[in-house]
Simulated scan of single mutants.
Amino acid sequence: MAEDVLVGWGWDPGPGLEPVPGTQRALGELIRAWIDTGAACPSP
């Protein structure tokens, strides 16, 4: 996620499109922290 080109498109979507908030680096850091802490998924 932190380096994937397709994911990175969200921050550079092209003319007329609004980029997603935050940064790709921050997304990578959040996902790494989630994985490092067990990657728990809440159940409904």
Rank of each mutant, 00 (worst) to 15 (best):
residue 17 L to K: 13
residue 6 L to W: 07
residue 4 D to I: 05
residue 44 P to K: 08
residue 17 L to W: 04
residue 5 V to K: 07
residue 5 V to W: 00
residue 25 R to F: 08
residue 16 G to T: 02
residue 17 L to T: 05
residue 5 V to T: 04
residue 18 E to L: 07
residue 7 V to T: 15
residue 32 R to D: 15
residue 6 L to C: 01
residue 39 A to W: 07
residue 22 G to P: 00
residue 44 P to L: 11
residue 29 E to D: 13
residue 28 G to C: 03
residue 22 G to M: 02
residue 16 G to W: 01
residue 2 A to G: 15
residue 44 P to S: 12
residue 13 P to A: 06
residue 41 C to I: 11
residue 5 V to D: 08
residue 13 P to C: 04
residue 6 L to H: 04
residue 4 D to E: 13
residue 20 V to M: 14
residue 32 R to N: 10
residue 18 E to H: 02
residue 40 A to G: 08
residue 33 A to W: 07
residue 19 P to K: 12
residue 37 T to P: 01
residue 26 A to I: 00
residue 22 G to L: 03
residue 2 A to P: 02
residue 25 R to A: 15
residue 1 M to F: 12
residue 12 D to L: 07
residue 26 A to G: 01
residue 29 E to N: 04
residue 31 I to L: 13
residue 7 V to F: 15
residue 25 R to E: 15
residue 6 L to D: 10
residue 39 A to M: 12
residue 7 V to Q: 14
residue 23 T to F: 02
residue 26 A to R: 12
residue 20 V to R: 14
residue 19 P to H: 12
residue 7 V to S: 15
residue 20 V to K: 11
residue 19 P to C: 12
residue 31 I to V: 14
residue 26 A to F: 01
residue 21 P to G: 08
residue 5 V to Y: 00
residue 15 P to D: 14
residue 12 D to F: 03
residue 12 D to M: 08
residue 14 G to N: 08
residue 34 W to N: 09
residue 9 W to P: 00
residue 9 W to R: 10
residue 34 W to M: 06
residue 27 L to H: 02
residue 27 L to Y: 06
residue 34 W to D: 10
residue 17 L to F: 10
residue 3 E to P: 00
residue 20 V to N: 09
residue 32 R to I: 00
residue 20 V to H: 06
residue 42 P to N: 11
residue 8 G to R: 11
residue 34 W to V: 09
residue 25 R to W: 04
residue 44 P to Y: 08
residue 34 W to L: 05
residue 16 G to D: 05
residue 4 D to N: 14
residue 15 P to E: 15
residue 38 G to A: 09
residue 36 D to T: 14
residue 41 C to K: 05
residue 1 M to R: 08
residue 16 G to E: 03
residue 24 Q to N: 06
residue 19 P to Q: 12
residue 13 P to K: 05
residue 14 G to H: 07
residue 11 W to D: 09
residue 38 G to K: 05
residue 2 A to W: 01
residue 12 D to I: 03
residue 24 Q to S: 03
residue 32 R to F: 02
residue 11 W to K: 10
residue 10 G to R: 11
residue 29 E to V: 06
residue 5 V to M: 00
residue 37 T to W: 06
